[in-house]
Amino acid sequence: MKLEGKVWSFGDNIDTDAIIAARYLSTSDPVKLAEHLMEDIRPDFPGLVEKGDILIGGQNFGCGSSREHAPLAIKGAGVSCVIARSFARIFYRNAINIGLPILECSDDLSHLQPGQDRLQVDFEEGIITHLETGDIYKAAPFPPFMQEIINLGGLVGYVKNRIKG
């Protein structure tokens, strides 16, 4: 699986409250949640993010509560994948389970220009390429098992497949 998109960067320890504030949790509709994505730390973000964009985070992205609404809001905004130095554990699970690809990359991506720089992400190889400069960043390759879950639209699709088989 390969993806291309322009980037938006966020810092370290972006918590699930920053991704989607608790006051919006009365719905689990991804599109409605996306209207408030990152609103408390970047109020104009819901108006800027476009389908196919890539989110970049620092350390411990998605820390805090176990709410699945956080990856749902990101997916609802059309974000194609999230790349971070590290993810909080339950966010990592939840993202995979709802079919949102995420990648851990220890290279520093903080110099990338938000809303401008475009990356290509190769999940099988774990290679991230800057589409203008050709710079290459290494990430942990995406295991086939996770690939399968993502391809089936998340854990619900995966389980349905298992039940049928």
């Binding site: 699945e68 339950i90 699970r93 939840n94 998340g154 854990l155 619900v156 389980v159």
Partner: peptide
């Protein structure tokens, strides 16, 4: 260990988790 609600749904259905 703690997981999300989708994990729980899958475990209720097939008794497995990744």
């Amino acid at each position: 260990t703690g997981v999300g609600s989708t994990d729980l749904a899958a475990a209720i259905a097939i008794g497995e988790a990744w």
